[in-house]
């Protein structure tokens, strides 16, 4: 219940209508959107029960490892109702054509593979919010100071998922496990995304805001 309340509203991409469509424009829009989403997601993390009790250093380490997984999982959940399209924001939905134009066809196809998995399972909002918190708590940072505290956070979230499934999906006792088993693909896809945006950063043609840059650099 606390995670459902903490779930942030979607934000708008607001692509500049005066700029003609191009790969640079699409990537600029996405990087600006990601930067603003990250601010929102850091605020969200503080509402995960147990997260604020971690040391500041461990909170930072988990976010530095897991931020892209959180961004992608949010796009995936928003896209469940559509067919072969990614809802980066309510006013920014990418189809195959736009993905090609932005040079994001491979990455977006990988994200669509996740969408397909969750569609097949009928992922619910309750499951999505817990899974997202688990992705953060389980982001496997190498810099954790108090790994027992992080383990306790993982256990609490894992327990919440198991309780939810026991109550709401007693017909499928393996549903919680099935959901956890989607996390490797999320990790893999996030790693691809980070790699892709690191090379865009090195190109230097797309302006990026400071928080997005800071977190990309934490992954470099």
């Amino acid at each position: 219940s606390l995670l459902l309340v903490a779930e942030p509203e979607g934000i708008f991409a607001m692509p500049d209508p005066t700029v003609p469509e191009s790969d640079i424009k699409a990537l600029t829009t996405l990087c600006d959107l990601a930067d603003r989403e990250l601010v929102v997601n850091i605020g969200w993390a503080k509402h995960i029960p147990g997260f604020p009790s971690l040391s500041l250093a461990d909170q930072m380490s988990l976010l530095q490892s897991g931020w892209m997984e959180i961004l992608i999982l949010r796009v995936v959940f928003r896209s469940l109702a559509l067919e072969d399209k990614l809802v980066y924001a309510e006013d920014y939905i990418m189809d195959e054509e736009q993905s090609k134009l932005a040079g994001l066809l491979d990455l977006n196809n990988a994200i669509l593979q996740l969408v397909k998995k969750y569609k097949t399972m009928g992922l619910e909002k309750e499951e999505f919010v817990v899974l997202k918190a688990i992705a953060l708590a389980n982001s496997d940072s190498m810099q954790i100071e108090d790994s027992e505290a992080v383990q306790r956070l993982q256990d609490v979230l894992h327990g919440a998922l198991q309780d939810y499934e026991a109550t709401n999906h007693p017909e499928d006792p393996r549903r919680a496990g099935k959901l956890i088993m989607t996390l490797p693909l999320l990790r893999q896809t996030a790693a691809r995304a980070v790699q892709h945006f690191c090379s865009i950063k090195q190109d230097g043609r797309v302006p990026m805001h400071k928080l997005f840059l800071e977190l990309l650099e934490a992954k470099a």
Partner: peptide, 15 residues
């Protein structure tokens, strides 16, 4: 930590 000052600031904000 100096390298990650925006994240640090956002986590420290009370909101």
């Amino acid at each position: 930590k100096e390298k990650h000052k925006i994240l640090h600031q956002l986590l420290q904000n009370s909101t």
